[in-house]
Nucleic acid binder design. Structure first.
Length: 320
DNA sequence: AATAAAGCCAACCGCCGTAAA
DNA sequence: TTTTACGGCGGTTGGCTTTAT
């Protein structure tokens, strides 16, 4: 049968940690490490806590190099950028902010940053961006971003997919000048301030397709590996409204593509089209494409490419 | 000064994918 | 192959603090 029970839940302490408990936990880990087994940890360390609770306390508070206090503008920008791309994947976002924990970022977003963004948005937007009641929060609207980055005067449209696996600092400036910008300039769907793109990792374009995918890497705030969508179905929320997406880096055949321009018959398509396969279409949206489209098209912000000069492109999602 | 409301955040809860038996 | 625990994650809550009335 299965494993032995992890702990006696009736005899574990709950609630705030005392300084004594903190020092016990910290001293033990500094001497012996976690041992790779959090469930067994409390007994070894002499704590009357659930292993999960110990793990959380260590990761979110006692771990070395934890940063507390005010978030910088740069951190704000990174959080917003990633949230727009991948939604509420706090552990992934935290991996890009050294010293910050997913819990910290989540709290910061829910209590401050979201309000900040919404306050900016409400000045110029008829319909506030909705926030769902369950599952991952969908990415924030581009409108909100345009509000956040009022200073920008022009936009570069990314032609490579964003991946949260890569450290943000790894972006190469020459990516901003590659030939693929021509293709992207025709898209009215993807708009990214230069200030954001400079922090973004992209992948190469293959003909009319953006190929989404990435190499596996460590991204968890505690240094452990975590993968987005690994072994899971790709959901719309994984992609983000901008068409960015992350797929399982291990399974080559689970990439998906985003196409621009013409359909197979060579004709332009002037409306959003959902070409869904697999279970993707079964995922209900709190934030449907029409909403996104409306937000984008209603933008009066100069940061966006003039829609008259662009063609709306159909997005095809291939799940192969 | 007292009270209520809002803000904040540490910690808990429950779910999911994986691993172990 | 099935069952169950583990580890990790995101959502939510409860209580403390701060601000407004």
């Amino acid at each position: 049968m299965g494993r032995a029970p992890c702990c006696d839940k009736a005899n574990v302490k709950k609630g705030p940690w005392s300084p004594e408990e903190d020092s016990k936990l910290k001293e033990y880990i500094e001497k012996y490490g976690t041992g790779g087994n959090w469930i067994a940890f409390p007994q070894k360390a002499g704590l009357k806590r659930c292993g999960k609770s110990c793990r959380l306390r260590w990761l979110n508070y006692l771990r070395p190099n934890i940063k507390h206090g005010e978030f910088t503008d740069e951190e704000d920008r990174i959080i917003c950028t990633l949230f727009a791309s991948i939604g509420s994947r706090w552990s992934v976002i935290a991996a890009q902010l050294p010293g910050r924990t997913d819990n910290d970022i989540k709290n910061y977003w829910n209590t401050k940053l979201r309000k900040k963004l919404m306050a900016m948005t409400s000045q110029s937007q008829r319909k506030p961006p909705p926030f769902p009641s369950s599952h991952h929060t969908p990415p924030v609207s581009s409108q909100s971003f345009s509000s956040l980055y009022k200073g920008c005067t022009s936009f570069y449209t990314p032609t490579r997919s964003f991946t949260a696996f890569e450290p943000i600092s790894s972006v190469q400036s020459d990516l901003l000048n590659n030939n693929n910008t021509n293709l992207a300039a025709n898209s009215s769907l993807i708009h990214t301030p230069e200030s954001l793109v400079s922090h973004t990792q992209y992948y190469p374009v293959k003909e009319n397709f953006l190929i989404f995918g990435s190499e596996p890497s460590c991204s968890s705030s505690d240094g452990s590996c975590s993968q987005i969508s690994y072994g899971r179905e790709i959901k719309q929320e994984d992609m983000g409204f901008q068409g960015f997406g992350v797929s399982n880096g291990y399974e080559e055949n689970h990439k998906f593509m985003l196409s621009y321009g013409t359909n197979n018959g060579g004709e332009n398509v002037n409306q959003w089209t959902e070409k869904l396969s697999g279970s993707y279409g079964e995922c209900p949206l709190d934030y449907d494409l029409e909403d996104v489209r409306r937000l984008i098209s209603s933008s009066s912000n100069s940061c966006f490419i003039d829609e008259n000069k662009t063609q709306e492109k159909v997005m095809h999602y291939y799940y192969y």
